[in-house]
Design a binder for these strands. Structure first.
Lengths: 231, 231
DNA sequence: GTCTATATCATGATAGAC
DNA sequence: GTCTATCATGATATAGAC
């Protein structure tokens, strides 16, 4: 059964894919620069060179577009992290994976995304950073679902490397470190400006190295003592 | 020259003050919960029990209201910090103020504000946290002006306590710690929920103690070495 | 000084032509 | 599948009555 070229192309959903991808790319740029509320779909679609109605057709609406955009990137990011964690744990045999290695597995993919200006990776990094600070109610479920497996496995692995920490101390420090990571990516593109040129925007390896050392020292500091007098 | 009671009251600007304050309180609540763009002045004024036009009259507009709200809190916060720093430096004679004390002087006022539910302090904390992640162009100048003196003096003091750090290492770590602080306040009201009850929302002293230890260990970790091979 | 009423504008969504 | 044209809504700002 012979098929025309046009039928073949449509069977690959290429036209849709092209439009969907142009929308996603424009969405990442717009939402990263302006935030969810301030970015408008008119701007966004105009910049993507597609019709306003295309968003409703392909994604369903503004919220669904935002969720799809985040989910796509987050899923790929977390797959990378889980794969490398699995590999590292196999290499370690039954012993705990060293803490610096764990941190690196967790954050290097994010730094690499943030370097990927060509494919919009730097945009999604800012968006993910914002997700933590500005809670969008419709994103709660999405974020919880996407982060849960990664967080569970890495927390488990980190706690094996730092067994002396109580769950409470561990979770507080984890929260501090997540905040440091989020903020780092939120301001990475302005570091030169914010530090009068002393820290450079494009010094990703330096930032990564410093962040790993920072997180390691934060996790391995001695456990806090209860307040004196608390029986 | 006898003045009526009404004239006397108006000469104190009491009605204005009451309205201004009601607007500011409602603004803090609305902006903290919804963010700048999503919060609307209709909601806000309705909740404050004042007329919509009162905002334009007393503040000039939405942006000016937001700026006034942030400035008022930030100024008082930074005054507290600078006063306590000055006092600590006098007590220390010429010697550097110990690092843990410096961190505490910097963050305790923020923790205390965040406890002050009655006067809306917890709202402004979330707003300040967001200011770092979601950049509002019209706030750049305000934030720079308000933070500059505090940041300059504390940076100087911290660097005296941790002289071994290069400016670059110091600024990267400062950025990490600022991020940790910002995130802590952004999620403090949800810590119980996020950690299945292990970390408690209302455990402000525990959070403060852990944060100080965290920041101290981050600042006093050995300076990073240049990458091997970089001449 | 304060508030009502309105002006003006931009948004997200969608019905219906092609 | 795609696009045009339009809808309904809610935004900020303000002119003018009191």
């Amino acid at each position: 059964m012979k098929r025309s070229f046009k039928t073949f192309v449509f069977s690959m959903n290429l036209p849709n894919a092209a439009i969907r991808d142009r929308i996603l790319a424009a969405a990442e740029s717009a939402f990263a620069r302006q935030g969810y509320d301030a970015a408008s779909m008119r701007q966004l679609t105009r910049h993507a060179g597609v019709n306003l109605a295309a968003v409703s057709y392909h994604f369903g609406g503004k919220e669904s577009l935002y969720a799809a955009m985040v989910t796509r990137r987050l899923r790929s990011l977390n797959e990378t992290r889980l794969n490398s964690l699995e590999q590292a744990e196999q290499e370690a045999g039954g012993r705990p994976v060293p803490l610096p290695r764990l941190i690196e597995l967790l954050v290097r993919p994010v730094f690499e995304l943030s370097q990927d200006e060509a494919h919009g990776g730097s945009h999604i990094i800012r968006i993910l950073g914002r997700s933590l600070a500005e809670p969008l109610p419709f994103m709660d479920a999405v974020l919880a679902t996407e982060f849960q497996p990664t967080m569970a496995l890495f927390s488990q692995a980190v706690r094996r490397s730092v067994p002396q920490l109580s769950p409470e101390d561990f979770l507080w420090r984890l929260s501090f470190i997540v905040g440091a990571m989020q903020h780092t990516f939120a301001v990475l593109h302005r570091m030169s400006e914010l530090t009068s040129g002393i820290c450079r925007n494009d010094d990703r390896e330096g930032a990564l190295r410093r962040f790993i050392e920072f997180a390691v020292s934060a996790f391995s500091a001695p456990a806090t003592l209860p307040v004196a007098g608390a029986s």
